[in-house]
Simulated scan of single mutants.
Amino acid sequence: MSEMRLYDTAGNRLYLNAEERAAFLAVARCKPARDRTLCETLHFTGCRPSELLEITPARVDLSGGTITIRSLKKRKDASGNSKIVYRSVPVPPEYLDTLNMAHGIREAQKSRKQAAAPIWPLSRVRVWQIVKGIMIEAGIPEAPHRSPKGLRHGFGINATVNGIPLHMLQKWMGHAQLSTTAIYADAVGKEEQDIAARMWGQDSLGVRKSVVQ
């Protein structure tokens, strides 16, 4: 298995930064409901496109505020047998409201057949095309990070910058090993400045925060 990285061998960034993530989301929210919710799901859960295509209404917890995702990476139990692993990722209530309105999630959950049907009955290639098209429109430059994988890595970086503990991020992203998740602590540029600013007791503009005595 190849080691997961945030940069390719030429030093090119493999993740979307905060500005690119915001631009991507802004453009996605102007698109038809199917494409908008597809992009918002990738943005807010950090899931892989193949995992997104398995999400059904039954896996959307409107009251609990989570999306349950089946981890597609193979796992083995103590006996060495393959096992299925699910993870629940907390998401914003506004996103869930949009998802429910666009796809009739609450109504679909009343029918066993509809509750088990994929929300986005598309191919992986089509998902890639939708995401790439929106990234281009958002002005994200042609580079290795302009991809669904770049969006997933951006989710990990964003969580790290905002102080999410690595063990929690490991669960949200479906990593088998904490060492895999730890690559997101290797943030650079603007992201690293934000992390360092908290250590110094400053904001990202270098203005020292007031301290309550």
Rank of each mutant, 00 (worst) to 15 (best):
Q114P: 03
P165D: 12
R152L: 05
T56S: 08
L16F: 08
Y86Q: 12
M4D: 09
T41L: 15
A102K: 08
K209Y: 01
P121W: 06
S50I: 14
G64F: 04
S147C: 11
I157Y: 10
P90N: 05
N158W: 09
Y184E: 04
A102S: 15
E20N: 04
I164Q: 09
W120M: 01
V127C: 01
V161K: 02
N100V: 05
G156C: 04
V131D: 03
I164R: 07
Y15G: 01
A115I: 05
L99S: 01
M4V: 09
S204C: 11
A185E: 09
T98V: 15
R208V: 10
H103T: 03
C30Q: 13
V207A: 12
L169E: 03
G133H: 05
M135T: 02
L52V: 07
G156K: 00
A23V: 04
G133P: 01
K113L: 12
V211Y: 10
T181L: 05
L205N: 15
S63W: 13
A23D: 08
G201N: 03
S147H: 12
G150D: 01
R124M: 10
T181R: 00
D61E: 08
R13A: 01
S88F: 02
Y184M: 06
C47M: 05
G133Y: 02
L53D: 01
Q170F: 08
R21S: 07
Y7C: 02
N158M: 13
A185H: 08
R70E: 14
M1E: 10
P121N: 10
E19F: 10
A176N: 11
E54A: 10
A115S: 15
H153A: 12
A196R: 13
V89M: 04
R146V: 04
R59G: 07
